[in-house]
Amino acid sequence: MDAAVQVREVVKNYRTVRAVERLSFEVRPGEIFALLGPNGAGKTTMVRMLVGIIQPDEGEITFPAGSRRGPLGYLPEERGLHRDTPILRTLEYFGVLNGLERSQARDTALAGLKRFGLDGRERDRVDSLSKGNQQKIQFLAATLHRPSVAVLDEPFSGLDPVNQQQFLAEIRQLQSEGCTVILSAHQMDLVESIADRLLVMDHGVSVLHGTLDEIRSATGSGVHLRLKVGGDAASAAEAIRDWDGLESAAASDTDTLEVRLRRNCPVGDALRVLVERTEVQSIETAEETLREIFVRTVGKGSER
């Protein structure tokens, strides 16, 4: 099987706004696919079309035969549960709506609650839980039926770092069970650590697409060097500014210099220039992070 989800030439308009513009991509079976983009890029519209709660104006979204068994698992960006209802009843209800038998939904819900440290609170009302714990219930409601395809819109928002790690583990567990996961998120470090492939959208179109390595290669980002220098780092940056192998140089601290080389620039040449022109005390290399690529590609200030 080549793809779990195929999106071809999809267009979606809202009155005078074109939210998605001829977008095409594929999600492979069993992978974690991240959909990234600044606010208003069209991610949530794309997610809603993937789930089928809104329809594209043009193009098509298909789940090739066998890639989708039963309802999708869907965690919407706008979270919401029946607040006045007991937790277990809420989970049972969503389980049944997603195709489980009531007893099966109940057993799976109890196991999920235990996994999230919420055992003993089955009969409590949903609104008695903290926001983070309500998000766990929402996640359980979306994935109780162990879907073959899960679409998670901003799964990490509003979670503390410990719970973010727990959600990462849950998503990896889904993947290990054969589930194809499509997620949209703004937490670039988390996406970088979990996504197999990603697509960056801006103004409804795809601007980057592939694995992180493919994207690094496509965006032409060269090697990144971090130097500890003797003296003022800002002066050191000025001293190398005119060198033609340089993409950028900036002081990140009084004694730390961040240097980005042009693509294909040999590191040896760079080290020679740096040693000649600055007082290098230590040096380390680093790859460009997803966050850096994102900010560079779609513009600063677009992250939450």
Binding site: V51, G52, I53, Y74, P76, G80, L81, H82, F94, L97
Partner: peptide, 8 residues
């Protein structure tokens, strides 16, 4: 809660 339900 509408989106969660309409997805199912």
């Amino acid at each position: 809660v509408t989106e969660s339900i309409l997805a199912a």
